[in-house]
Design a protein around this nucleic acid. Structure first.
Length: 306
DNA sequence: TCCCAGGGGCATC
DNA sequence: GATGCCCATGGG
């Protein structure tokens, strides 16, 4: 008999939007969407397991498909962070309604919540890999890396992968990582970040205890390979920060061009002016703007030419 | 051929 | 602090 857990769904939460985001038309090795469920393999306290998350109407239903999950608190906390469940997002919708260009985001994507990346090491690796290249290519590189260095879990006909641990990356040579078609600099950053995690100089606990988002940003930006964009992306996706804005992000720029006609370049002041009205909910606005770039699964991004 | 992708480091002034 | 260049690859 497999273990099952239930987490009540909060109001203003759309599991379908969550699934849409996890799937999109991208090839993310970190999880697998099957029907109206998502499968994910991860490691906790040295043990690996595979879980399925589904929806019975009133609850999220978590089934442990393989391995054992003895730490229920960890599991619930993980899913809470992953799907941003314990947040009342009504104030965000109130702010959206106050902007005539953005009000449509509530109507179209009601119940969409931020989908995070709770594993801090995975998150930073993903940031570095994704810098400056298109998403399809970034997911391809990540898949190669995970399939090569991450633990494999087989269940049924499928093979799942756990993200590699710092010790699996820290002693690699730059040339080994360059073979995955990343730049030499990115290879250096990944190896360096893995070393910082292994030595304990960088950890989720350490960043979590900082008293403000500003201090998190400046601490993160001390790390080689982490600039303003990555630091903001990191506090958004890994620390549930509410005012992270990855300025310069092409997705944000494209969305604000589509919705508000704001230029895509040299637009810092105009972009800041939009976000200034969303104090306390800036991260949510970023996420909804990204959502607006794609319609449904399988459809190409909607990005008008200049 | 050129520019852009969910950038960042570095040299140079 | 701002500016320009480099990195590597795929797609338009």
């Amino acid at each position: 008999m497999s273990q099952k857990y239930f987490i009540p769904k909060p109001s203003n939460f759309s599991f379908d939007e969550t699934l849409w985001f996890l799937d999109r038309d991208l090839d993310d090795v970190s999880h697998t969407v099957i029907g109206r469920t998502v499968h994910k393999a991860f490691r906790h306290k040295g043990k690996s397991c595979l879980i399925e998350i589904g929806d019975n109407g009133t609850d999220l239903v978590i089934t442990v498909l393989k391995g054992k999950m003895e730490d229920q608190d960890f599991l619930f906390q993980y899913i809470n962070e992953w799907f941003d469940l314990d947040r009342d997002i009504r104030p965000f919708y109130k702010l959206l309604r106050s902007d005539k260009d953005l009000a449509i985001l509530e109507k179209k994507y009601k119940g969409l919540r931020i989908v995070g990346i709770p594993d801090f090491f995975e998150l930073l690796c993903w940031c570095v890999i994704g810098q400056q290249i298109n998403l399809d290519f970034a997911y391809t590189i990540k898949r190669r890396l995970v399939e090569r260095f991450g633990e494999k879990l087989r269940f049924g006909q499928r093979e799942y992968h756990v993200f590699p641990e710092p010790k699996d990356i820290m002693n690699l040579e730059v040339e080994e990582l360059k073979a995955f078609q990343m730049t030499g600099k990115k290879a250096e950053y990944l190896i360096g970040i893995a070393g910082l995690f292994y030595s304990g100089q960088l950890s989720k606990e350490k960043i979590s205890t900082l008293p403000s988002e500003e201090e998190m940003l400046s601490e993160l930006m001390k790390v080689r390979g982490i600039g303003e964009w990555t630091a903001n992306y990191t506090i958004m996706k890994g620390f549930r920060a509410m005012n992270g804005v990855p300025y310069g992000d092409s997705g944000v720029n494209n969305a604000l061009f589509n919705l508000k006609g704001i230029p895509k370049k040299n637009n810092r002041a105009e972009v800041e002016a939009v976000f200034q009205k969303f104090e306390g909910w800036k991260t949510y606005l970023v996420f909804y703007l990204w959502r607006s770039l794609r319609n449904q699964v399988g459809l190409a991004p909607r990005m008008p030419k200049d």
